[in-house]
Design a protein around this nucleic acid. Structure first.
Length: 119
DNA sequence: GTTCTGACTAGGA
DNA sequence: CTCCTAGCCAGAA
């Protein structure tokens, strides 16, 4: 399997990180949403891949746990527990099926977002 | 240049 | 609700 190198993160990945970094505490964004902001509406999978290969030195600066799937559930099969724990700690609540209220916790990107990040 | 993969998604059964 | 499918795309080999 071709996995993203833990260190090399040139263009697209770096942009993904730049956007995710702006997701405020207590809010969540979706992979598709991040992709759309980057003007690649159908690259949601790539966004997930980018976060999967998040370099260790950025783990503390990029709130990777605030990105979930469009269904409002945590996708991450390997770190579901850890991700869910972090989100709960920020006040986000999930129902018994693992869903959270996107209307309530969904992040609404500020209008000047595109200017703050270079696309 | 080709091939393959996945922390995705929308749509249908 | 859950399960399956096809389409998707940047990056690595």
């Amino acid at each position: 399997m071709a996995r993203p190198s833990a260190v090399s993160t040139p263009s697209f990945f770096a942009r993904v990180y730049a956007v995710v970094r702006l997701v405020p505490k207590g809010k969540v964004a979706t992979y598709g949403q991040i992709a759309t902001i980057l003007e690649h509406p159908r690259a949601a999978r790539t966004v997930g891949w980018a976060l999967n290969g998040l370099p260790a030195h950025l783990a503390g600066k990029v709130p990777w746990h605030r990105v979930i799937n469009a269904q409002g559930r945590v996708s991450n099969t390997a770190n579901v527990a850890e991700q869910t724990r972090r989100l709960r700690r920020e006040g986000i609540r999930f129902d018994r099926h693992g869903y959270c209220d996107m209307r309530r916790y969904g992040w609404e990107p500020p209008p000047d977002l595109r200017k703050r990040i270079k696309l």
